[in-house]
Computed example of a mutant assay.
Amino acid sequence: MAKIIGALVVVIYSGLTFYLGWNARRWLVAMDWYYNTIIFWTILYVVSFSIVIGRLHESLRIFSVIGNYWMFIFEYGLLLCLMAQFVMWVTPFKNVQLIGCIVVAVLVLLFIVGSYLAYSPVVRNLTVTMDKKDSELTSMRVVVASDFHLGVLSNKRHLQRFVNVSNEAKPDVVFLVGDLVDDDPKWFVEDGMAEVMKQLTSTYGVYGVLGNHEYYGKKIPKFVEEMDKAGVKILRDETIQVDKAFLITGQEDTTNKERQKLKALRVDNHLPWFVMNHTPNDLVTPAQEGVNFHMSGHTHKGQMWPNQHITARVFELDHGYKLKEQMHTLVSSGFGFWGPPIRIGSRSELWVVDITFR
């Protein structure tokens, strides 16, 4: 059954690629830039499957980069081609050359804007109030970020942006809520990103959890080891107490079908309880268990319009802040990006949360 579904996906994807190529060919012919049919279709399909080719061997890394950018061209190319054909269908305007130029110009504009929104993160500020309980603190500041997808395109320079902005906030604690690397931690190691991560400063430390992409990379022990060297403590279905200040629980990602239930990770004391769960799949349980501050990522807020309308339907909260009963809930759209380094309708971000204890 899985093979049949996979084959069906390939057929549909190939058909959509053909439709996109057919429209591109019409425009190139109109512009008198079209030369060879075999070369055109060969390049198109190699590019369209480059995301797969790039995974065959490390020496083919360039194809992974091409494939990431192709994802942007594929999604918005299809949308713009459909819009262009609709215009030609319902209006007397049939100039393929001019309409094609407009489509390409819009695609370039979206690329420029999307790149800026991906690589120019914004700081989002939030102020909340919690019951003091038994904490020795009267207030604290936390930095929350997720979905760095550190690798080829979300690189060392982008990580340095995060470190600089986080340190400027002078946080008491930093929470990194999953998908810190893009599947394989090898780029994190080879590019020396640990030296950048070590620069993070906070009163009580830096803590993180696994996301689905750490599981996709299948090198979790290596990842945890490298994060430890970089000064990030990865919590895997465990709860720790930090001084007499607060509790932190880090849940395994939902990809791990054997992860423990949150109830099993609960500690019976009266300190403020912070929980990191990469995927915001269930906000009901932590609210019932008495969590004070729940943090997630994963959604990217769709990353590229109109995908946010999908994430908004899938998750109770796909981005931003929500007070659910007594629980403060935060879902970040991520500091990095997955696939193309493009954001449209979302933006790379980190959260600075100021907490006052009553």
Rank of each mutant, 00 (worst) to 15 (best):
S296F: 05
I53W: 09
M304A: 08
V177K: 05
I53V: 15
Y69P: 02
T285D: 10
V275G: 03
S348Y: 07
T91Y: 07
V177Y: 06
V353K: 00
K263N: 13
A264W: 05
L235K: 03
I99W: 02
I4N: 04
R358A: 04
W305S: 03
V87P: 12
S14F: 03
W305M: 05
T42P: 07
K94S: 11
V275E: 06
F74C: 06
G205H: 04
I234F: 03
L210N: 08
Q260E: 15
A7V: 05
G67V: 12
K3L: 14
V142R: 00
L79M: 14
A145S: 14
V142N: 01
Q241P: 00
T42K: 07
G297K: 04
T311I: 03
L82Y: 09
D354V: 00
G192V: 01
T42S: 14
K186C: 08
W70K: 06
C101Y: 12
D282Y: 10
G339Y: 08
Q97N: 11
L262G: 01
V122N: 07
V108N: 03
V267L: 15
T203A: 11
I5F: 11
V174N: 06
F148L: 14
N256G: 07
K229V: 12
W305Y: 13
K222Q: 14
W273S: 00
P171V: 02
K218G: 10
L317Q: 11
G320K: 04
Y204V: 00
Q260V: 13
A118T: 02
